[in-house]
C-alpha cells in the first residue's frame, strides 16, 4: 500500500506554500515586464502603476474595514493592481486607472467572496470595463516614447512589422505587454518556482499559432505567426492571467481544454473580429466556462466507471 493512503491523526506536516508566497512570486515575476515598461514609457508609466496598485489595495482595505474581515495582507490586491496597470496604455488619465482598480476589487472580486471565490479575473474584467467605457482612451497608444499604431494593428492592416523589435519590446502598446523577452524572463521565474506549469500557456500558444496558420490568410509563414505571437497581450495573458489560480480549471485535462479554448477564441477575435486584439476578452470568456471544463474532465474515483457506476456492475 502506498504511503499516501496512511493518513495519521493530526498534527499533519504542512506545506510551505502560502497565498502570500505565491502572490509575492507573481509580483517578483512581473518585475521585468514592469521595469521594462517604466524604462520604455518613462516616469508616467510608474505613476499609472502606482495609482492603480494604490486604488486596488485601498479598496480592498476599506472593504475589509466595512466587513470586519481584513484580507488585504495576502498581497492579491497588489497583483491585481499591477496586472491591471500593465494592461493600460501609458497615456491613460490617472482617474480612469484608479476607477479600474476600484471596479476590479469592488465589483468583480469582493462581492463574490474575495480571493478564491471570484469567477473572473478581476484585472482583466476591469480592463474590459474600461475598454467598453472609454474606448478611445484605452486604445490611445501615442506617447513621447513611441508614436504610431501597435504592431498588431499594422499587421491587421497588412503592413510590415519588425519582429525583433516586438520581441525586445521597442514598440507601442500597453505598459506591460510590449517586451516579450521581459515577460518570458518573468514566466521562467514562475515556472522554476513551480507556481505555474506549461499546461495552460503551452496549449494556449500552440492552439493560437495553429489557428493563425490555418485561418490567418498567409499560411504557415513563420514571420507572420511569430509576429502574431509576439504582438499584443498574448504572452502576458498566457503566462500571467490565464494561469490565475482562482479562475482556471483545477483538473489537468480541464486546463488543456481551457488553453485550447483560449487559443481558439483569441484567434477568432484577432482575425475575424473588428479589433486587432482579443486576449482579454478570450480569457474572461474562458473564465466563465471553467465550471464546464471541470465538469467534463472530472476525474473518476477509484473503483468507479465514468458516469458514476461502480466498476464490475
Amino acid at each position: 500500500m502506498s504511503g499516501l493512503y496512511q493518513v495519521s491523526s493530526n498534527p499533519h506536516i504542512r506545506s510551505k506554500v502560502t497565498t502570500n508566497g505565491i502572490m509575492l512570486a507573481v509580483i517578483v515575476a512581473l518585475m521585468p515586464a514592469t521595469g521594462y515598461g517604466i524604462y520604455h514609457f518613462g516616469s508616467r508609466a510608474l505613476a499609472v502603476i502606482a495609482v492603480t496598485v494604490a486604488s486596488t489595495v485601498l479598496t480592498e482595505y476599506l472593504y475589509g474595514l466595512c466587513r470586519k474581515k481584513m484580507t488585504v495582507t495576502d498581497l492579491s490586491a497588489v497583483v491585481t493592481g499591477l496586472l491591471l496597470a500593465l494592461n493600460l496604455p501609458v497615456t491613460i488619465p490617472l482617474w480612469i486607472a484608479a476607477l479600474g482598480g476600484v471596479f476590479a476589487i469592488l465589483v468583480v472580486k469582493m462581492p463574490f467572496g474575495g480571493l478564491g471565490q471570484n469567477f473572473m479575473n478581476p484585472a482583466l474584467a476591469a480592463r474590459c470595463f474600461l475598454l467598453l467605457s472609454f474606448p478611445t482612451r484605452m486604445t490611445d497608444f501615442q506617447c513621447d516614447a513611441w508614436t504610431g499604431a501597435t504592431p498588431l494593428a499594422l499587421l491587421k492592416a497588412g503592413e510590415k512589422v519588425n519582429v525583433t523589435d516586438m520581441v525586445l519590446g521597442n514598440v507601442g502598446g500597453t505598459i506591460g505587454e510590449t517586451s516579450v523577452a521581459a515577460i518570458v524572463v518573468g514566466a521562467c521565474i514562475l515556472l522554476l518556482l513551480g507556481v505555474i506549469d506549461l499546461r495552460i500557456p503551452g496549449s494556449y500558444i500552440v492552439t493560437f499559432a495553429l489557428f493563425v496558420g490555418i485561418f490567418g490568410g498567409r499560411g504557415f509563414d513563420p514571420y507572420y505567426i511569430s509576429a502574431q505571437l509576439a504582438g499584443g497581450g498574448l504572452m502576458l495573458g498566457a503566462f500571467f492571467m490565464a494561469t490565475d489560480y482562482v479562475t482556471r480549471p483545477i483538473t489537468a485535462g480541464g486546463q488543456y481544454l481551457y488553453g485550447i479554448f483560449l487559443g481558439l477564441m483569441t484567434g477568432i477575435f484577432r482575425i475575424f473580429g473588428p479589433g486587432a486584439e482579443g486576449v482579454s476578452y478570450a480569457i474572461i470568456l474562458g473564465n466563465l466556462l471553467v465550471p464546464l471544463f471541470e465538469k467534463a474532465t472530472k476525474p473518476v474515483a477509484f473503483g468507479y466507471k465514468r458516469g458514476g457506476a461502480r466498476r464490475g456492475k
Partner: peptide
C-alpha cells in the same frame, strides 16, 4: 467629466 460609456450599454444596466 468624461462619460463612462458602459453605463449607456447593456452591461451598465445590469450593474
Amino acid at each position: 467629466f468624461e462619460p463612462i460609456r458602459i453605463f449607456g450599454q447593456a452591461p451598465g444596466a445590469f450593474f
